[in-house]
Every structure is written in structure tokens, then in C-alpha cells.
Design a protein around this nucleic acid. Structure first.
Length: 388
RNA sequence: GGAGAGAUGGCCGAGCGGUUAAUGGCAACAGACUGUAAAUCUGUCGUACUACGUACUUCAUAGGUUCGAAUCCUAUUCUCUCCA
């Protein structure tokens, strides 16, 4: 398969490029919003488009169970079904092997799942993972893989990695759809040596794109970045590199710094639904009582719809009263916040200025974060003494 | 006027002689969330302090019974239901 990725500029290890797909071109570095069940929770496509996103992630396993991939195919495919004319990347269901481990039993042939919806039993194989994604018709499909949890032994990690490699080969053999690219997934847990082996092994299989999976699943930041480093160095330079499940604003910088091109994460939308918002001055919980009466934007430098339109006081009111619009406004803000970071990063890479861009952001985001903590402590003490 | 039921921590509501500073739920306060089993979860939630413990004060009010009471008795105040 001819490569669909073009590297346009580098700055240190950071890269800017473009990935061409059947439904558009992704400018990298890119963040991709997650819309597991064929929707980015609480948003409509106008929202997603308005933020500048043209690729969303959907989940093959969830759609396979409900409403069913063949059903979606009968409805004209996933793009038509959910009426999104941008790009779609489907995750295979490999992550569910990890996140729903209590409901999954893994063998070399595949994964026995007990449906979280109705308890019914399903056998999910590399073949099913691919056929299902071909039914869905996503622009980028992922191989079925097996991540391991922090604390896995060397043997368990090695076994899962080798199974991931076998499954990758099987997925590639089965995959036929020409308008869909199949990405492989590097595993190797938290063993840098295995990470390297995984990257090298999969590189030889010549996939159109490569992902790094199984990181940022609770292992500690240092471990995350060490293990990314351990594999990304051995991944093909002329293909897109997708770090799965990352992340937070600071994570985006650390990933891009090491040469990651694509990222996705539920964090932005999930914490948004729980009233946590990112700002240039750190993270805040907008439902806290201190935001009552604050007639100012969540982040005065943010150009998202929420910040342009509403005050902290208003969003605070919506959350405190459990109004559904709060989810939408918060999700728009967090997703746009990440979008602005990657757009700025791409420009900085072209300008050969990424390091400075990163430091400027992180110093303020984290230093002031410390200031916020001190403010909280001061308020606490004040409240205590005023009670006396 | 008569008969009956009841008053529990911000609210609702368990408890009906001793592991009760008092189950739950809500509200409140704080926090977490990283390829979405998430509109979820966790902690705090009488007061004070030398704060993973100690002390003090609580179950309408005032008395009483008892080694011991939110729980039993008496009176008072208030609330609700039914009958005239």
C-alpha cells in the first residue's frame, strides 16, 4: 500500500505532516475527539466542525454490539448512518480487552466477551474485528491488540505482545477494503525492551500507519514517556504515529515532543461532563461555589463558543442545577482547548519553535496551577479563621 | 368537641432499652477520571481540639423510670388524619 502520510516539517523530534484518507486530510500533529458510540457525547457535528476537527474516533466493539456493524452497513455505512462526512478512525475493540477485563477471557484465537449490556456471550476475533470495521467503513481501522495493566509480569507482557503481533498479521491478511487504512498497534507493556521489539517487529510487517497502545493506563507519567521513547524511535519515520488514549494538555506536548502525530482521548469530554475544565492557568472545577458571580469567561484567551458566549457564573449555574447544556458547553471548551494546542504546535514546528512553545505553555499551566493550590489553601485557612 | 397518629442532624427518612454521634437518600463541600460499561466514582459532612485520636453537646420541651434512653412513663407545645 502506498503511504498516505507525508512528513512536512520537523523540529527536533517533533513532526508536522499530513495524512490523506478517503474522507479528507488530517493535518498533524492532531488530536482526535472520541465518539465511541457514533457520537461525541453531548455534541452535534456542527460543534465538532466549528472547533476545526475533521476526524473523530468511533469504537468498533461497541458498535459491533450495538447497533451491530452489519446493521450499520445496511444503513449505508458509518459515515452515512451518523451523517458525518469527515474522517473516522475506528478502534478495534482491543482497548475493551483491557478496560472490561473482568468480562473478557483471552485465548490465542480471540477474546470471549460477556456483553456489558445484556450479559450475552460474544467471541471477538481478529477476523471479526476487521470484518466489522470494514462493515463500518471507517477511514482508518485498527488491528485487534492486547494491552496489559500496570503490574503485569514480564511473561504476561511478552505473551500479550506476541499475541498482539500474531493478531496484527492475521488482521492484515484478512483486511481487504481499499478505501480503509489499517494501522498496527505497538504493545510491550512497561518493559522498554519489549516496546522496542514490538515496534521493530510490526515495522517489518509494513502497515500504512502505526499506533502506540497500552500507555497512559495508570502506570505513572515517567513510565509512560520512557516507554513511548523506547518504541517510537524504532517506528517508521515515513508513516503516521498514533499514540492511543492520550491525553491531557501537558500530555499532548510530551507526546508531540517525541514525534507523535496523532492522539485521541476521552479525558477532555469525560472530565467536561464532570465540570472539570482546562484553562491556560491550570485545571478548574467550574461547579465550585467560588465561581458564582464570576462574570468572566472560563479562559479569556480561549476562542471557543462557550468562552465567547458565557460567563463562569453561567456555566457554574448550569452544572449546579444539572442542566444538560452544561455537558455540551464544557465539552466544547475542553475539546477546543486541545485543538488550539495542537494547531499551535503544528505552527511552532513549522517555525522551528516547538520547544519554546511548549515551555511557555507548561510554565504557565503548571506554575500557576501551583499558585491555584496555594490560593485554595489560603482560602481554606481564611474560612477556618473567620468561623472562629 | 371526640378518636387516632406523629415530632430524629440543612431536607427526606431508618432506628423503637445497651456494639448509636445515630442506617439510607438528597443537598452541601473537596477530589479523581487518559484507544468511554462513566450524566460515573471516592472522601468529608454535630461542635471543639494537642485531630486516623480525644473531649463535649445532640433525636420537639421539661421532668421521671433505669446501671444505661432517640427508644419506656408523665406533663407541655406543635403538626397531621378521621368523626361530629
Amino acid at each position: 500500500m502506498t503511504t498516505s502520510f507525508t512528513l512536512q516539517a520537523t523540529d527536533g523530534r517533533a513532526r508536522a505532516g499530513e495524512l490523506r484518507t478517503a474522507h479528507g486530510t488530517l493535518l498533524t500533529p492532531a488530536f482526535m475527539p472520541v465518539g465511541t458510540q457514533a457520537t461525541v457525547k453531548s455534541l452535534i457535528w456542527d460543534d465538532v466542525r466549528a472547533m476545526g476537527y475533521n476526524l473523530v474516533l468511533c469504537n468498533n466493539y461497541h458498535l459491533y454490539l450495538n447497533p451491530g456493524s452489519e446493521y450499520i452497513a445496511s444503513m449505508g455505512g458509518l459515515h452515512k448512518f451518523m451523517n458525518w462526512d469527515g474522517m473516522i478512525l475506528t478502534d478495534s475493540g482491543g482497548f475493551q480487552v483491557f478496560s472490561m477485563a473482568t468480562l473478557a477471557k483471552i485465548t490465542d484465537e480471540g477474546v470471549h466477551f460477556k456483553s456489558h449490556v445484556d450479559g450475552s456471550r460474544h467471541f471477538f476475533t481478529p477476523e471479526i474485528a476487521i470484518k466489522s470495521q470494514e462493515y463500518l467503513g471507517s477511514d482508518i481501522a485498527m488491528v485487534l491488540d492486547q494491552p496489559v495493566a500496570p503490574g503485569a509480569t514480564y511473561e504476561q507482557t511478552k505473551e500479550a505482545m506476541e499475541r498482539t503481533h500474531r493478531w496484527a498479521a492475521e488482521c492484515k491478511r484478512i483486511h481487504t477494503r481499499e478505501d480503509q487504512q489499517l494501522f498496527a498497534i505497538v504493545q510491550g507493556g512497561f518493559v522498554p525492551e519489549l516496546r522496542r521489539i514490538s515496534a521493530e517487529t510490526l515495522a517489518e510487517m509494513d502497515f500504512p500507519g502505526y499506533a502506540i497502545g497500552g500507555l497512559s493506563v495508570g502506570e505513572g507519567k515517567k513510565t509512560t514517556w520512557e516507554n513511548l521513547d523506547a518504541c517510537i524511535r524504532y517506528m517508521p519515520e515515513d508513516k503516521a504515529r498514533y499514540m492511543m488514549g492520550v491525553g491531557s494538555p501537558e500530555d499532548l506536548f510530551y507526546a508531540i515532543e517525541q514525534g507523535v502525530d496523532m492522539m485521541d482521548c476521552v479525558l477532555a469530554t469525560r472530565i467536561a461532563r464532570n465540570a472539570a475544565l482546562w484553562t491556560h492557568d491550570g485545571r478548574i472545577n467550574i461547579d465550585r461555589p467560588i465561581y458564582k458571580g464570576k462574570d468572566e469567561p472560563i479562559d479569556p484567551e480561549c476562542d471557543c463558543y462557550t468562552c465567547r458566549t458565557f460567563s463562569k457564573a453561567y456555566v457554574n449555574h448550569l452544572f449546579r442545577n444539572k442542566e444538560l447544556t452544561a455537558f455540551r458547553l464544557a465539552s466544547i471548551h475542553n475539546l477546543k482547548f486541545l485543538k488550539n494546542i495542537v494547531t499551535g504546535a503544528r505552527q511552532a514546528i513549522f517555525d522551528n519553535n516547538f520547544e519554546k512553545y511548549k515551555i511557555n505553555f507548561l510554565e504557565r499551566y503548571q506554575v500557576v496551577d501551583e499558585k491555584v493550590r496555594l490560593d485554595q489553601k489560603r482560602r481554606y485557612l481564611e474560612r477556618k479563621s473567620s468561623d472562629d
